[in-house]
Design a protein around this nucleic acid. Structure first.
Lengths: 312, 312
DNA sequence: GGCTGGCGATACCTGTGAGATATGGCCGGG
DNA sequence: CCCGGCCATATCTCACAGGTATCGCCAGCC
C-alpha cells in the first residue's frame, strides 16, 4: 500500500464522486477507479458503497479513512520536522562551559539564542576546561567554552576560536591598602597572601601565574585556592588577601571590593569556543550564527576556521 | 512522498548500510541510493550521514524517522482496522426493541454476542414497535425487535423474520379463583376485569384482543391498561383483575401469581426481527450470525429472506 | 416503452519511473 | 601502492500509473 492510495481514498470520501474526486486529484476517472479497486483488493474489503446518490465509505471504509488521515498527517509532519531540525529550529544543544563564561559572553548569547530558537533544548553543563574538551571528543557535548586552546587526545579534531581577550587583574577588599589605587605591581604581589584559581581545574591560568611570578614562587604555593571567580572575589572581600583572576571578573562587581590592574599587563589564556570539526548539528550552526552576529570578530575567526565558503 | 520512501529510510537506518538495507528490502543497492537521494531532495535536507563506519541518520533524519515510523504504523493499522470492521469485530450496533423482548430471546443472544464481539459497541434502546420501525427506516437503528411485521411508510424496505411464536395467556394473583386451574376460557374472561397492554404502544396485541373478545367488547374498553408486561403481572398480583399477555410472560415468574392458558388457544403477533434490506453493517451480520447459531429455525428463515447464498 | 444522460467499470494504449546491471570514484587498510 | 569495500552514476528495461475510448447500468423523462 502506498500513500497515493490513502490520498485517493480521502479525496473520494470528500467528494463522494469518482469523477469529481479524480478532477480534484488532477487525474482522470478510470485510474482513480482502478486505484480504489486495488486498495480494496489489498485490504480485502469493499471500502466504498457506490450508490446512485453518491459514493460513501462503508463501515470498514470509515475505519480506514480515519487511520489514513493520521498517516498522511504524520508523513507531512515528517517532512516539516526534518526541515525544521535541519534549520536548527528544533533539536538539542549540549553546551559545556567554564563557570566564569557566565560572566561575559554567555548571558547575551544565551538570551538571544533562547529567543531566536525557542524549540531547541539547551543543556548547560558547567565544567572545567579539560573536562569539557574530553566530553567534546567523546561526543557528549556539542560545544564547549573553556580557557585556552583545547589540549589532550582528540583535541586536533576540534575547531576552536577565541572569544574576547583577558589579562590579569587583582581584587581586594575595600579596606585593603591597595583599595583605591588603579594598579598594583607584580613585585608587590609576591609579598602578599594571594587567592588564585585551582591549578587542577584551570591549568591554563595556573600556568600563566607561574610564568608571571616564577615557577616555584612561595607566594603561589602558599596561596589560597578557590574553585571559581566568585569564590576568589568572596575571599578577597573578606580580607583573605589579593585575589588574582581574569579581567572578566570586572563583570561581577561586588560591594566592598576593589579591582585594580596588574602591571605589567599580563595576558591570560583566552576564553575559547570549541566544537568538533565534523558532526556539526544544525542547532550548533544556529548557535554559531548567533555568536557571529553578536561578536563580528569571533564571526570572522569562525569563517576563517571553517573555510571562506561560510558555514556548513 | 510515498510510503516506499519511508520504508526505505527506516530500513537504511536499521542496517546502517546501503547494500545490506537494500538486500533486506529485496532490491538492489543503486535503486535504494536513488530513492534516498530523491527523498532527501524532496525534504530539502540530507537525512543520512554517509561515513566509512556506516550510514547514520542526521539530526533531521532522526526527526524524520520517528514520524515515518508512526506513519507506517498508522497505514498498517488502517488495513487491520478496516478488515476488523468488515468482519464485524468492531463498530456499533444500534438495537431498538420492545421491552418484553428482554424476557425471552434477547438475554441469550446479547450475552453471546457481547462475548463473541467485545469490541462492538452495543446501543440498546427500548421502544414501542411502531417507533422502532420508523427509526429503522430513518436509519437511526440497525436492528429492531417488535411485535408483528413492520407497517408504515418505508416498511417495505425492511427485511423481517419472526423469532419464536406467542399465544395468549392469562395471569392472576395466587388468591384469585382461577389460581390453580390450568386454563381459562375466553367466555369467562368477558366477565372479568381485565389488564391489557396499551393499544397505543402495542397496536398488534390490541388488535388480536379485539378479534378475540369482539370489536367493542365492554370488557376491553373497561380494562386496565399497562405499558409493559411487568406492570400487567404486577397489577394481576395485586388482584386488580386478570392480566392478558403473550406466553413470553412465563419467562417472568413472580411469587404470588398464577399463569394459565386461554382457551381456545389464541396466537398472538410474533416477535419479529427486522432491519433494512440494504446498508447491512458487518456488525449487524455478525449479530445475525449469532442468532443463526442460537435459533436454527430463525436462521433458516433469514437465509430464505436474504437469498440462498448466505448472508450479505 | 424507448431515449437520453450521468456515472462507474472495463479495455487498451502510452510514458514515466522504479529497479536491475555495469561501472566509476573514493577512501582505508594491507 | 595496490586492493577491496562502499556509495554514486549511467544506462537499460519493464511494470504500472495514468490517459482515451467505450461499455453497462440505472434513473428520469418525454
Amino acid at each position: 500500500m502506498e500513500a497515493r492510495h490513502l490520498r485517493y481514498a480521502l479525496a473520494l470520501a470528500e467528494h463522494e464522486h469518482f469523477g469529481r474526486a479524480a478532477g480534484a486529484l488532477g487525474i482522470a476517472q478510470p485510474p482513480l477507479s482502478k486505484q480504489i479497486a486495488d486498495l480494496e483488493r489489498e485490504v480485502g474489503t469493499r471500502l466504498f458503497d457506490r450508490t446512485r446518490q453518491g459514493v460513501f465509505p462503508t463501515v470498514a471504509g470509515a475505519a480506514f479513512l480515519s487511520r489514513a488521515r493520521r498517516a498522511l498527517d504524520e508523513i507531512a509532519a515528517a517532512a516539516v520536522d526534518a526541515a525544521r531540525a535541519a534549520r536548527g529550529e528544533t533539536g538539542r544543544l549540549r553546551l559545556g562551559f567554564i563557570g566564569s563564561a557566565l560572566l561575559e559572553p554567555l548571558p547575551d548569547v544565551l538570551g538571544r539564542f533562547g529567543r531566536e530558537r525557542p524549540d531547541v533544548r539547551l543543556e548547560l553543563h558547567e565544567m572545567a576546561t579539560n573536562r569539557s574538551t574530553a566530553a567534546l571528543v567523546a561526543g557528549e557535548l556539542d560545544l564547549a567554552i573553556g580557557l585556552g586552546r583545547p589540549r589532550g587526545v582528540g583535541a586536533e579534531q576540534l575547531v576552536s576560536v577565541p572569544v574576547g581577550h583577558d589579562h590579569l587583574v587583582a581584587v581586594v577588599s575595600g579596606t585593603h591598602p591597595y583599595a583605591g589605587q588603579p594598579a598594583v605591581d607584580v613585585d608587590q604581589l609576591r609579598r602578599q597572601p594571594l587567592i588564585v584559581a585551582s591549578g587542577k581545574d584551570e591549568p591554563a591560568i595556573a600556568t600563566a601565574l607561574r610564568t608571571l611570578l616564577g615557577k616555584d614562587s612561595p607566594a603561589l604555593s602558599g596561596a589560597t585556592v578557590a574553585r571559581d571567580i566568585h569564590t576568589i572575589i568572596g575571599f578577597a572581600a573578606c580580607g583573605v588577601g589579593v585575589g588574582l583572576g581574569p579581567s572578566r571578573m570586572l563583570a561581577a562587581p561586588r560591594p566592598g571590593t576593589w579591582f585594580c590592574e596588574v602591571t605589567p599587563r599580563t595576558p591570560l589564556p583566552d576564553l575559547v569556543l570549541s566544537f568538533t570539526a565534523r558532526d556539526r548539528s544544525p542547532a550548533l550552526n544556529a548557535f554559531l550564527d548567533v555568536i557571529r552576529t553578536n561578536c563580528p570578530d569571533v564571526g570572522a575567526a569562525l569563517d576563517h576556521r571553517l573555510g571562506p565558503r561560510g558555514p556548513q
